[in-house]
Amino acid sequence: MQESTFNELADLALRNSGQHFAPTKSYLMDARLSNISRRESFATLDDLVQCLKARPNPRFEQEVAAALTSKKTSFFAERETIEQIVTHALPQRLKLSKSGILRIWCAGTSTGQEAWSLAMRIREDVGSPLASAQIEIIGSDLSTDCVETAKRGVYGHFDVQKGLSIHRLMTNFNRHDNGEWEIKDDLRETVFFRRQNLLNPASDLGGFDVILCSNIISSLAKPAKRQVLETLSKQMLPDAYLFFGPDESIEGLSSSIKPSRDMRGAFIRTSSDSATAAA
């Protein structure tokens, strides 16, 4: 890949998703754009970039930007955070809820495993107060392809064997004859997916009791980190909880949110102008 191609693609990623690429990560661009490149019959990424420059196409540019994001995920990848949400954050929110409705946003959920994992874990709490709550989970991602995969809820042999116990697999999936496994219908009733660029306002999603945004912030350039934190914090209902990946830091990036004193690993809003579009 020519240096100018790397620079063009890095700029494109920054503009469209806020993602920061160091020059040492050019191999990630090669890997993540290989499918698009093959589909469009480009011999090299240099050709792809030349085409984008010669015939600007915002839709294709967005698709390239989405393809450049990490798709790495697995079921129960953030196991401790899911436990914290189900055993502490949601019961706490339920105590304060007048409607009995709790809304969760998995922001940047890639192909949906995180949102489905949360739904599975919540459903296991049969005897807890959560069993009587009406819980809605929204999963969002920048990539239309990822959102479509998440909506289909059909996963391959290798996907369902990483992070899922055999009991969870048998309880929550039906097996197809071709060896793929599909999420059962009853689990689908509470989980919804849509495309969302976290750099843009998400006010039409409404307010949330819990937001989970793992392994997104750490991949972004600093101004984009601030913008995404703004987007997320605006959708937090009063006293709602926001969780990031376990190794992610937001120190010095936002004056709108701060670590929760009561909830390990969670963040809360500092100001009172949180989302009012309560469910």
Partner: peptide
């Protein structure tokens, strides 16, 4: 107690 469907890789064995 658990079930691995062949073919498998190291990540699956560790996960299970």
């Amino acid at each position: 107690n658990e079930y691995i469907m062949k073919p498998f890789d190291a990540e699956i064995v560790e996960s299970k």
